[in-house]
Design a protein around this nucleic acid. Structure first.
Lengths: 220, 220
DNA sequence: CCGAGAATCCACCGAACGGTGGATACCGCG
DNA sequence: CGCGGTATCCACCGTTCGGTGGATTCTCGG
């Protein structure tokens, strides 16, 4: 079957891959290598390296992890915006907790996907992001909808500090002694924590905190 | 400098890659492709597929994720042992909670690594595992040492049930009404939970449960 | 300047918790 | 059969928690 006159091949979408895990970087690169619609410009293992490379290489889309040592993904997204870099940032990460999703979206990410995304879906998502259109994984979309309905108040530094001590089993009295404040003050903070997390007791507060990424299994 | 008479090239270590995330499978494969010391025989996205392929392909080492839909990694390791398959299983996963590490090790895994393992370390680990020697990431080794010192008692089904209700903020009285038992019974279970988790109050119990994988952020 | 939020603090009081020291019944295993 | 673990249940009591309804001071942004 004769073809219509050949049109020039479209300019490939140029990618930068940012992830602290070598396996993941290799996996992502492997998904796009060999596809003429994409060109992998380079890789970075943290946010600072990503910002530097983006300034040099001018990618169309940056596939960005969030939790990385040194400068994390959110900080990098902010820095890219501050520097006026035109690249679209597509977050690709394991975590869909509130603590991860919202800051990234607020920082300016064009998309947010989880690492269980299949190859075809990822390719489509990168194309969508390159056009400047938003792309969200279903669980992230659900979580954002939830946020629109019931916006969560962030805990203050002091409240977070007290939440950690509560999770270790500290009574209000022990927490007070630890922080050199009165037990009444601790109770005030505790009640504020409950209000913000929408719970009524310590156990539920701790659970909600884990689910929101405020407390983590690696103690940090 | 003249070389000694050439010895035949060593037989490559034959690998099977098992992970439900396409990105990760690609990444792992990319790490070994092109290295003449290894041959990637195939890939599987869950435990059942892994067992079937291992029976057909007879790999030397299986790189196995644990949390997968359908048959998970631990069940697959057990099934491989039951079938007398000689392949060494090197667990490669994101999670190092007690709930993940111990069952895998008990099921017969030769090694346990986390996905932040770099390429060189992973290659070394695969070689080690192929020789039948154990290989553990530092955090997993630490956790196993902790288990040897203070073996953890598993929570009974009832205790787990109550733990979930506590994490939702249920008082002992509410939990009792929910389960059609007396408040005294709930308190007995609660105290047993504390003893087994090594804590003294509900909040610490919930935190410990999340850290051990007994409670998870996806409600399951 | 004003208002909101964060941090600090108080008193009071009923509810709930944690600890103690028991008890019985059932099941599975050696 | 005996033992250990699980599930169920009790009474008592001191401690802690959660709720209520305040208060003051400081900082920051509009």
């Amino acid at each position: 079957m004769p073809e219509t006159p050949a049109t020039p091949p479209p300019t490939p979408i140029r990618l930068l891959i940012v992830d602290d895990h070598p396996i993941v970087r290799d996996g992502i690169r492997g998904m796009f290598t060999g596809d003429p619609g994409f060109e992998v410009l380079g890789e970075a293992e943290d946010g600072a390296r990503a910002v530097a490379l983006a300034g040099t290489l001018n990618p169309d889309v940056i596939l960005m992890d969030l939790r990385m040592p040194g400068m994390d993904g959110v900080a990098a997204i902010k820095e890219l915006a501050r520097a006026g870099n035109a690249a679209r940032v597509l977050v690709l990460t394991t975590y869909d907790t509130d603590r991860d999703v919202l800051p990234a979206v607020e920082a300016g990410a064009t998309g947010y996907l989880l690492k269980d995304t299949g190859r075809d879906e990822l390719v489509r998502a990168v194309r969508t992001a390159a056009r400047g259109e938003a792309v969200l994984s279903p669980s992230v979309a659900t979580r954002l909808l939830g946020q629109v309905r019931t916006p969560a108040d962030p805990l203050s530094a002091r409240e977070l500090e007290i939440l950690h001590l509560i999770a270790e089993g500290g009574t209000n009295r022990e927490v007070a002694a630890r922080l050199f404040i009165s037990e009444a003050t601790v109770k005030s903070h505790v009640l504020h924590i409950y209000t913000k997390l929408g719970v009524n007791d310590r156990a539920a507060a701790v659970a909600a905190a884990f689910r929101r990424g405020l407390l983590t299994t690696d103690g940090g």
